[in-house]
Design a protein around this nucleic acid. Structure first.
Lengths: 334, 334
DNA sequence: GGCAAGTGCGGGAACGTTCCCGCAGCGGGT
DNA sequence: ACCCGCTGCGGGAACGTTCCCGCACTTGCC
């Protein structure tokens, strides 16, 4: 079986059955006019001979390449959200008969252009955007998260979660759990993607609506333990009784600190004014259950939707400039 | 500029210059016999007309597909190691003129075969291996980490770090820092990849050599805080003064617990027999500095090497069955 | 019974590229 | 003077597929 099917073409199948390549092509592809009987014979023969269609030949004749590109920001690749999104996109692309290829950010000048029908860029930043455009050429581009930088008209359509509503939901959930004064720990200001900006705005709006003084702090993506604890202390000192972490990965470490404190008994620890523990929430929940309120962005489905949107644009079923809202959900601690 | 170059072929260039397509092809590709003057004219004209080579046509004629596949185990995709490795591989593939495409694990029966020249599988498991083989057909396969399951002869070559030596190095480093009785927290036994098995073996060997009783514990990939703290307690109770975490991501949370304990004062905390803190180490360091000894697997370079190995096999420069050692390094806390 | 419409299939051509071969011109060795 | 080899280039053919057109045959209808 293995090795035998290498190089089998539709002509081989046609010769074996005594029919023409046109009939074989039509039978395999489903289109054209073939009798059901011939179609069945072709399918059986193809399977028996281990036929694999030659994508290069198909694309040469048909025009499309059968592949789409995915670009992920290079400074946050360790976050599982992007990985999950990538594999969701790969799934959806595979189902649509296309391949998903990873667009590594190459040197701006000397980079072969990959042959793709379109591309998806996740959380694009103005710094990386021109380089990406150069790589993909004229291919349609979908962005995950709004892009507001230069040349934004190159984005054919985009999909994003409604982070303003999500942060409000999270804050409401925290309030239900008893938190009245939540702090927000945002990303470093210089590398804040659009969605994190929306979160901060939504936080401000919620605070205004609830007549709460906003406490907006920032943290590195990978703070040291001392920095992490200092952030928690600062929040407590500012009178907060809850923290919403914007960056993925921090809430687990913060909870570890909290747990240790509860476990080992503590004094002078970061705690809410009335002596309770700080409640924790995250805007990008990790896989696995944890004891915090958080936004499950459903990264896998996010990637799938982006691919759907791209194929919609390619098939001219989606008007350029379309904006789709991705449904995320807020999960409560078990 | 954009859009103008769509559909420019070498024949267009040839017509514009009054020469033949053969000369243009030779000039662009570098091979063949063309005068330097003609070559320069062709290059200038191609650039002016915005020529982009048609990969489908090249591959159709040349035989190769110009793409390789990458398969990543689906249950550990949140770990940054795999993401970094993937992008390293994408880089290397791009430099070699190929695309890297993500192999999503599709339903075993109904999956289009991607057209690839070869594939790389990371930490293959016997459960996922047959499905992968079905997807890649007869294409050469490189594994990152040894594969010892059924049909292992399908792996053309493999690359792996020397985890036995690495764990010994880590344990030596811990000993230098003052740890005399290190515990090892391994992965769940039912999903232990080959490298984690090597780590456990190396740990056993080191303990035997240093006349130390091995304390081997296991932890889920995403334990709750209670489980994490229990693991640390158990290690301390067993008389250990250090913990080596095998899974990526746990050491950060463990350090958070330690830091909180140190910060807030503690009694009855998980501590070494002589009252000091447990020293921490990891076999898969995260990006970013942290206060623990750990193995930097150099995931990016790991991916690049795997791609190099694959192209070596494709070009018949590497003998099937070759095993290459990937150089990782042990980093000390700053 | 002739004529239109429909069905099942075959024969090219085309997609853009690379590779093999051929053909001039030209220089140098015997 | 003849032949060989080298250089610079042109003319096909081929890669495997899909699509357009055409041909034979069947069916339905006036």
């Amino acid at each position: 079986m293995a090795g035998a099917g290498a190089g089998v073409t539709i002509i081989d199948i046609a010769d074996a059955l005594g029919i023409s390549k046109t009939a074989v092509s039509a039978a395999l592809h489903g289109s054209g006019r073939v009798s059901e009987a011939t179609r069945a014979r072709v399918l059986a023969q193809a399977s028996a001979m281990g036929y694999v269609s030659n994508r290069a030949a198909q694309r040469l004749r048909g025009g499309r390449h059968g592949a789409i590109g995915l670009s992920v920001p290079h400074d946050v690749r360790e976050l599982s959200f992007y990985m999950e999104l990538a594999f969701g996109a790969a799934d959806a692309a595979s189902e649509a008969g296309s391949d998903l290829l990873l667009l590594a950010d190459a040197a701006p000048g000397r980079a072969r252009r990959p042959s793709i029908d379109g591309a998806i860029v996740v959380d694009p930043t103005p710094s990386a955007f021109p380089c990406l455009l150069e790589r993909i050429g004229d291919a349609p581009l979908i962005s995950v998260g709004e892009y507001v930088g230069a040349e934004r008209e190159r984005v054919s359509a985009w999909i994003a979660a409604d982070h303003r509503s999500l942060i409000a939901e999270v804050l409401d959930a925290l309030a239900e759990e008893g938190a009245s004064a939540p702090a927000l720990v945002a990303l470093p200001a210089d590398r804040e993607p659009a969605w994190a900006h929306d979160v901060a705005e939504g936080y401000g709006a919620w605070c205004a609506e609830h007549r709460q003084r906003p406490v907006l702090m920032r943290s590195a993506l990978d703070p040291t333990e001392a920095e992490l604890i200092a952030t928690m202390r600062d929040a407590a000192a500012a009178g907060c009784d809850a923290i919403v972490w914007v960056a993925q990965g921090l809430v687990l470490r913060a909870i570890a600190v909290q747990s240790a404190r509860a476990e080992f008994g503590a004094s002078g620890a970061p705690e809410a004014p009335h002596g309770a523990r700080l409640l924790m929430a995250t805007m990008a929940a990790e896989p696995g259950a944890l004891g915090a309120t958080g936004v499950d962005l459903r990264a896998r489905e996010y990637g799938r939707s982006a691919v759907r949107l791209l194929f919609g644009v390619l098939d001219a079923k989606v008007a350029p400039g379309t904006h789709e809202v991705h449904e995320a959900r807020v999960i409560r601690p078990a």
